[in-house]
């Protein structure tokens, strides 16, 4: 393992709610992730996988502990600073695709570039390149309603990688897809990891999918239970 992990969690806790209804979802997570790794996160439902991913993705802040992302102490950053980190370094893929409805594939993919303030020509070129990478170049003017689940998830991946992020965070990206579609998505993620050097963090319940990863992190009751090397390592 290299000495400078891109992501480093130390004693991270997360408490939801306050008072008697407060619930401690994370109880002190320590985790290092190296640049270029492909990590699968597994564990029973409610063990804190999504909570951890949201913190790693700078979507949420830990209640306690420290989170070092590319040298930034994320727990000290405000909303806007975290938004700018996401904009520059992170891409997201969700279980539910989360595309904008009534919006073409290309416009969905271009959206992060718009917030980056890129001009029209560059947005188009980069958007089409990203769609090409996920094999949907010919579907650029279709809205989500006109695409299959697998295609929608590939558009979501194109949107996540269009800004050439350092880290791709994917919470159960194949959770809503059949096994054939799932395999296609996993092959795509593997390709992005191998050939574009993107660090991939992925939550999954399925060992078949976890098998694509180089590192597998097991969660239980808000703690990291074990870390093992994947078959592809």
């Amino acid at each position: 393992m290299s000495v400078n992990p891109i992501i480093s969690l130390r004693g991270v806790t997360k408490v939801y709610g306050e008072g008697p209804t407060a619930f401690q979802a994370l109880k002190g997570v320590d985790l290092d992730i190296q640049q270029g790794d492909f990590v699968a996160v597994m564990g029973p439902s409610g063990s804190g996988k999504s909570t951890t991913m949201n913190i790693l993705g700078c979507l949420d802040v830990p209640t306690g502990g420290t989170y070092l992302f590319k040298g930034h102490h994320v727990e000290t950053l405000d909303r806007d600073q975290r938004a700018l980190l996401r904009r520059r370094y992170l891409g997201f893929v969700f279980q539910g695709f989360n595309l904008l409805s009534r919006t073409t594939a290309l416009e969905n993919v271009e959206l992060p570039l718009l917030y980056r303030g890129e001009d029209k020509k560059l947005r188009y070129d980069m958007g089409m390149a990203a769609l090409d990478k996920v094999g949907l170049k010919d579907w650029w003017d279709h809205t989500p309603a006109e695409l299959s689940g697998g295609q929608q998830q590939r558009v979501a991946i194109a949107r996540a990688i269009v800004t050439q992020p350092d880290v791709l965070v994917a919470d159960e990206p194949t959770g809503n897809l059949d096994s054939q579609r799932s395999i296609e998505i996993m092959e795509l993620l593997t390709d992005l990891n191998r050939n574009s050097g993107i660090t991939v963090l992925m939550v999954t319940h399925e060992p078949d999918m976890a098998a694509y990863a180089r590192t597998i992190v097991h969660f239980r009751d808000g703690l990291v239970e074990s870390i093992e090397e994947g078959v592809k390592a």
Binding site: A83, R88, G91, L100, P112
Partner: peptide, 10 residues
């Protein structure tokens, strides 16, 4: 939520 997640500032 989508806009905020992909990096839009509030």
């Amino acid at each position: 939520g989508i806009r905020l997640a992909i990096g839009a500032v509030a």
